Every structure is written in structure tokens, then in C-alpha cells.
Amino acid sequence: MAMLDPAQRRAQGAKLQAEYTATEVAPATTPVGESWRDFIFAEIWSRPGLELRARFLISLASAAGAGDPRAVNAYARGALQTGTLSQVELREAALHVAVYSGWSAGRLIDEEVGNAIGELGLDPVETEPLVGKPWDPQERMERGFAEFNNVMTFDGPRVGNGFAYLQDGILNFVFGEMWHREGLDQRSRRFLTLVGVADSAANTPIRSHFHAAMGSGNCTAEELHEFVLQYGVHAGWPKASVVQGVIFEVAAKIEKGLPWDG
């Protein structure tokens, strides 16, 4: 049985905390402060199961969902300083989080990304406008239907269904526009989405999106098990426990080649 050294854990945690938040971290003087350094950064952020990019995205979204601007700012600084995420990618992440966690959460990320850019003395980078030219509504809806199938691995609401949320929200904007934007790749968008549906505690979105994450090939079951641990930092262990159960269930279906069945 290996014996672990508390001093080594403290040193590892302090190093990673400073690097991944681009901040001079004050010495920890309370159990909570020590746990940030010695457990979250020393043990979770150092794990090999997810790339650093994914850990930043999960942490940004879940910290925003928890309403923690200090943490969002720290992760934005760290992502920029390490070169893990660009300004454009962070702005795009804010938009994606707005859809799945609410526009207040998206605005929180957007504002703290702006603050981080200023604090690091970076020149702001322009992002692409939401829409740069006129579009045909029918084509946009059809594109949204096709993209829904691509992302979710099953057919979504039908074009022309006439329901405001399903047609104008889901087909028109979410899949007809946002998922098509080039600022983030699909795997990155996937992690942001998983945080949003996990925070929602809504049974069908949680199961369908985690099934789609594996069914699309964006994430493996092993990576999603790692997601749960990273997500639990801001969401808390009870919400993470629900997600863990879903992953066990969905992974078994994927292994058997079963499609999403609702």
C-alpha cells in the first residue's frame, strides 16, 4: 500500500491552482481553502481521464450554473493564460451556456471573460455576429432538423410543427443557428450542454443528452465517468450522483447498440 505525502499534495495543488486560475493564490487557512488546493486542484485537475480543455469547459459552465463569478473569472483567466481556450472560444462558450443554463448564466461567463481579458492585458478579439446575412426561414428550420439528428442521434421536432418552443426555439435557434457556429467544435459544445442538462435535474434531457454524447462518438463512457467528478465540484455530490447513475444506465444501452428510446 503506497503512502501519500501531505506536503507533496499541498505543493501539487498550489502549483496547479496558481497555473489554472492565473492567480496568485493566498495560503489556505481554513478546511475549505485547503480542500480547493489539496483535493480539487491536486487530485481532480491532475487526473488523466479528461484533457485540460474539457476540464475548463465543464468548470466554467458548472461555476456559472452555481452563480460563482469569482470561480468563472479564475477559470477564464486560466484558460486564456495557458492558451487552452481562445477569446473566441470563451465567448462562444458563453453563448452555448446561455441556451442550456439560461441567459443569466451565459451573461455571467461573458462578463467575466471580458474582465479576465482586461486583467491579463490582452487585446480584445472580435467575434462573428450571430447572423451576417439574410436567411430563408424554411431552409434554416430544415437545417435545424438535420443538425438535431446529427447532435442527438435521433429525429427531433418536425419542421412546421407550429409550437413556439419546439419550432422557433429548438429548430430555429438552438440547432438551426447555434450548433452550426464555428467558434467551438462539437465535443466542446457537448460538455457545456451536459452541464446544463445535469443542472436542470430534468430526467429526459439528462438521459437523452448523455446517450447522444456516447452515441455520437463525442465522449466515451470512461470520459463521462470523469466528467461526473469534475462536474461535482460546483454542482455538489447529490447532482453528480444522479448523473453517475444515468451514465451507468446509458453506457449499458450503448454497449448493446440500443438507440435512444425516450
Rank of each mutant, 00 (worst) to 15 (best):
Gly33Arg: 09
Ile254Tyr: 00
Ile44Ser: 04
Trp45Val: 04
Phe39Lys: 01
Leu50Phe: 00
Ala105His: 08
Gly169Gln: 01
Ala64Thr: 10
Ser86Asp: 09
Arg37Ala: 02
Ala18Leu: 03
Cys219His: 07
Pro137Glu: 04
Gly262Trp: 05
Glu92Ala: 13
Leu194Asn: 01
Val97Asp: 00
Leu192Ala: 04
Ser216Leu: 10
Leu224Cys: 12
Glu43Gly: 06
Gly215Arg: 03
Ala198Glu: 05
Gly132Arg: 02
Trp45Cys: 02
Glu177Ile: 12
Ile40Pro: 03
Asp261Thr: 13
Leu90Arg: 05
Leu50Arg: 01
Phe248Ser: 08
Thr30Met: 05
Pro48Asn: 00
Lys15Phe: 10
Gln244Gly: 14
Ser35Val: 07
Gly176Glu: 00
Gly217Lys: 08
Trp179Val: 08
Gly78Met: 05
Gln186Phe: 03
Thr29Phe: 08
Ser200Glu: 07
Met1Trp: 07
Ala198Asn: 09
Asp123Glu: 13
Trp179Cys: 04
Trp135Gln: 11
Pro137Phe: 09
Gly156Glu: 08
Trp45Tyr: 01
Ser46Pro: 13
Asp136Ser: 13
Leu184Trp: 05
Trp260Cys: 03
Gly83Leu: 08
Gln167Asn: 13
Ile109Cys: 01
Trp103Tyr: 09
Asp123Ala: 15
Lys256Ala: 13
Gly217Asp: 10
Phe39Ile: 10
Gly196Cys: 02
Gly176Cys: 03
Glu222Asn: 12
Arg187Ile: 12
Gly236Lys: 02
Tyr231Trp: 13
Trp260Gly: 08
Asn73Pro: 14
Val246Pro: 11
Ser200Trp: 03
Leu16Pro: 14
Ala221Ser: 09
Arg190Val: 02
Glu24Val: 15
Ile40Gly: 00
Ala66Asp: 06
Phe163Asn: 15
Ala74Arg: 09
Arg187Asp: 04
Trp237Glu: 11
Leu120Met: 11
Leu85Gly: 06
Glu112Pro: 15
Asp155Arg: 10
Asn149Gly: 11
Ser208Glu: 00
Gly121Asn: 13
Leu60His: 03
Val131Glu: 07
Gly215Lys: 04
Arg10Gly: 14
Ser35Ile: 03
Ala146Phe: 05
Val228Leu: 03
Lys239Gly: 11
Glu19Thr: 10
Asp5Ser: 14
Ser46Glu: 02
Lys15Val: 14
Glu112Trp: 06
Gly65Glu: 00
Ser241Gly: 14
Trp36Thr: 12
Met3Lys: 14
Met152Glu: 07
Asp136Glu: 14
Leu57Glu: 06
Val159Phe: 02
Tyr165Lys: 15
Leu50Met: 06
Glu19Ser: 07
Thr21Trp: 02
Ile58Val: 12
Ala94Gly: 00
Gln186Ser: 05
Glu34Gln: 15
